[in-house]
Amino acid sequence: DVEPGKFYKGVVTRIEKYGAFINLNEQVRGLLRPRDMISLRLENLNVGDEIIVQAIDVRPEKREIDFKYIP
């Protein structure tokens, strides 16, 4: 289970104008929005990159997770 405030290693699987989709595993995916990136820009991410993200909002009923990147 993903818990708000905890850090997780994930893989960038898709990049859109509104953010990057990060997979923690095959069943768990969330969104990293540009506003939640500190010292990292969306255009510097590539599909396949491994990054450490912090879960900031977890909505299991909608199967949605918002992430934050903190270097």
Score class of each variant (00 low, 15 high):
L24K: 00
A55H: 01
N25W: 12
N46W: 14
L32P: 01
Q27F: 14
N25Q: 07
R63T: 08
R14C: 06
I70Q: 11
N46A: 15
D66Q: 08
I38E: 13
D49M: 14
L24Q: 00
G10L: 03
D49V: 06
P34R: 11
K17Y: 14
L24M: 05
N23M: 11
R33S: 04
A55K: 03
I51D: 00
I15D: 00
P4I: 15
E16S: 11
R63C: 10
L45D: 00
E26C: 10
D66N: 09
P4V: 15
I56G: 07
V11I: 15
R14K: 12
I51L: 13
D49S: 06
I51M: 08
I56R: 06
I22C: 01
T13P: 00
E43N: 11
L31Q: 02
K6C: 10
G19N: 01
R41C: 08
D36K: 04
N44I: 08
Y8P: 00
G5Q: 06
P71D: 09
I70Y: 12
E61M: 10
I65V: 10
D36L: 05
A20S: 03
V28P: 01
P60Y: 11
V11P: 00
Q54R: 06
R29Y: 14
E64L: 14
A20V: 09
I22S: 00
E61Y: 09
E64V: 08
G10E: 01
K68C: 07
M37E: 02
V12I: 13
V53E: 00
A20F: 03
R33Q: 05
I70K: 08
V53L: 04
P71W: 06
A55I: 14
A55E: 02
N46G: 11
A20P: 00
E3V: 14
F7K: 07
R41P: 05
N25C: 07
E16N: 09
K17H: 13
G48P: 01
R41F: 09
T13W: 09
N46Y: 13
E3H: 13
K9Y: 11
E61Q: 12
S39H: 14
I65T: 04
E61G: 13
G48I: 02
Y8L: 03
A55P: 05
Y69P: 03
E50Q: 12
R29T: 12
E16T: 13
G48R: 05
N46K: 15
S39L: 13
V12F: 01
T13K: 07
V47F: 05
N25Y: 07
T13A: 10
P71M: 08
F67I: 03
P34D: 07
G10Q: 02
A55Q: 02
R59C: 04
K17T: 13
V12E: 00
I22T: 00
I65G: 03
K6A: 09
R33T: 03
L42F: 08
I51E: 00
I51G: 00
E26H: 15
P4Q: 14
V58F: 08
R35S: 10
D36S: 07
K62V: 12
R14I: 08
R14A: 12
L24I: 13
I52C: 10
Q54G: 05
E50H: 15
F7G: 04
Y8A: 01
V2Y: 09
Q27D: 14
D1L: 14
G19L: 03
R33P: 01
P4D: 06
L31C: 04
I52D: 05
M37A: 06
V53R: 00
P34W: 10
Y69A: 04
N44F: 11
Q54L: 15
I56P: 01
L42S: 03
L42V: 06
D49E: 08
E50L: 15
K9S: 10
Q27R: 14
I65K: 02
L24V: 09
K17G: 10
E16H: 10
G48N: 07
L31D: 02
L32G: 00
Q27A: 14
G5Y: 08
F21S: 03
F67V: 04
D1S: 14
D57I: 11
R59T: 05
Y8I: 02
P71Y: 07
L32N: 00
D66K: 09
N44R: 08
E26A: 15
I22Q: 01
I65D: 02
E3T: 14
V2F: 10
V28D: 09
V2Q: 02
L32S: 00
I38C: 09
L45I: 11
N44V: 10
I70V: 14
V11Y: 13
L42E: 02
K6H: 12
L45K: 01
E26F: 14
T13E: 07
K9A: 10
K68Q: 11
V53M: 13
Y8N: 00
E26R: 15
D66F: 12
P71N: 08
Q27G: 13
F7L: 09
A55G: 02
I70R: 08
N23R: 10
K62L: 14
G48E: 04
I65S: 02
N44P: 03
D1E: 13
L40C: 07
L31M: 07
F7M: 09
G48K: 05
V2P: 08
P60M: 10
F7I: 08
I56Q: 07
R63E: 13
V12N: 00
G5R: 05
F67K: 02
L40I: 12
D66E: 06
I52P: 03
E16P: 02
P4Y: 09
N46I: 11
F21I: 12
F7W: 11
D36R: 04
L45N: 00
A55N: 01
R41W: 09
N23Q: 13
A20W: 02
V2G: 02
P60Q: 10
F67W: 10
V53P: 00
Y8D: 01
G48A: 04
K62T: 12
K68V: 08
D66G: 07
R41H: 09
K6R: 14
K62D: 10
T13H: 06
N25P: 04
N25V: 05
Y18D: 05
K6I: 09
I15M: 07
N46F: 15
D1C: 11
P4H: 09
V11W: 15
N23Y: 10
I38N: 11
V28M: 10
I65H: 04
Y69I: 03
G5D: 06
